[in-house]
């Protein structure tokens, strides 16, 4: 849809758009270009000169077992975060949708975690599962289970997944609830009259009608799990134990800032850029389709 009525002038629109272009150029395109450029070099240990290595950094990365492990970790982590947060959110949304009265109150209460920063969510969950003072750790101990996410890799992964998913439930809940409330009651009532029980109706009518929202949330949640969970991981595990929770974004940070390996970190940034670009394309294709609905 193009707007036909326009104002005349060349300098005014250029001046209007200039602030955004300048900021985007300085803080987006230049750094992204730098990342691509740096990924082709290896700096010497003193940072005085750079040696051109072509795709050497990428070849090294892709054959580096730690980097490949980080890929697998990221895949497991983002799958679990997405499934847990969307599953719980869908369950709660279905319940809230069944209520005529009171769903507003529940919604207000469920919105809270959206406003809680991932890093703060990390601190809250760390507190509950702290190996020395954590309440849940203590109760688990009473039950005979020795919780120690500092040493146990699976427990560490479980904890960062739950903490990351927790903050995301509100967001998914809002979208699912909006989607459920948009489904025409008549369709569901017709199925009920035909004798379809709740579960049958959900499986054959509700869930298929929700699929556009589900797909949208899938992409958004994967992006969230890839990038915004940095705060959770940094506060709870710092990528440990033995890199068991080092997702890709965390590795860019730990190699670039802690390890000072700029060439490798830049190459990792480029790979991440490509991954996000791919996700963006998928989402745009999806938006296009949705518009035509």
């Amino acid at each position: 849809m193009e707007k036909r009525i326009t104002f005349k002038g060349v300098w005014l629109p250029l001046a209007l758009i200039a602030p955004q272009i300048v900021i985007t150029a300085v803080f987006f395109f230049y750094p992204a270009g730098q990342a691509i450029w740096q990924s082709l070099f290896i700096p010497d240990p003193f940072g005085l000169s750079m040696t051109y290595v072509g795709l050497g950094n990428f070849e090294f990365l892709l054959s580096d077992p730690f980097y490949r492990a980080s890929f697998v970790t990221t895949a497991i982590f983002s799958t679990l975060v997405t499934v847990v947060s969307m599953g719980v959110a869908l369950f709660l949304a279905v319940l809230a949708d069944r209520l005529i009265k009171g769903s507003g109150t529940y919604r207000t209460l469920l919105i809270w975690p959206y406003a809680v920063a991932p890093a703060v969510a990390g601190v809250l969950w760390l507190f509950m599962f702290n190996t020395r003072v954590g309440v849940i750790t203590w109760y688990l101990g009473q039950l005979g289970y020795d919780w120690n996410h500092v040493l146990n890799e699976n427990e560490a992964m479980g904890l960062v997944v739950v903490a990351s998913a927790w903050g995301r439930i509100s967001y998914n809940f809002l979208f699912f609830l909006a989607g459920l409330q948009a489904i025409p009651r008549s369709v569901i009532e017709a199925a009920a009259i035909d004798g379809a029980r709740f579960w049958t109706r959900f499986r054959t009518i509700v869930f298929p009608l929700l699929s556009p929202i589900t797909f949208f949330l899938l992409v958004v949640n994967v992006v969230y799990a890839f990038f915004e969970t940095f705060g959770v991981i940094h506060t709870i595990t710092s990528g440990g134990p033995q890199q068991a929770t080092t997702i890709l974004v965390y590795k860019v940070y730990s190699d670039g800032f802690v390890g000072q390996d700029l060439g490798s970190s830049a190459a990792q940034s480029v790979i991440l850029l490509a991954l996000v670009a791919l996700l963006t394309v998928i989402q745009f294709k999806f938006i296009e389709r949705r518009v035509h609905y």
């Binding site: 987006f28 750094p31 740096q38 990038f227 940070y253 800032f257 940034s269 850029l273």
Partner: peptide, 8 residues
Amino acid sequence: LPVEVRIV
């Protein structure tokens, strides 16, 4: 494209 990707 979040800032996390191009931090360095």
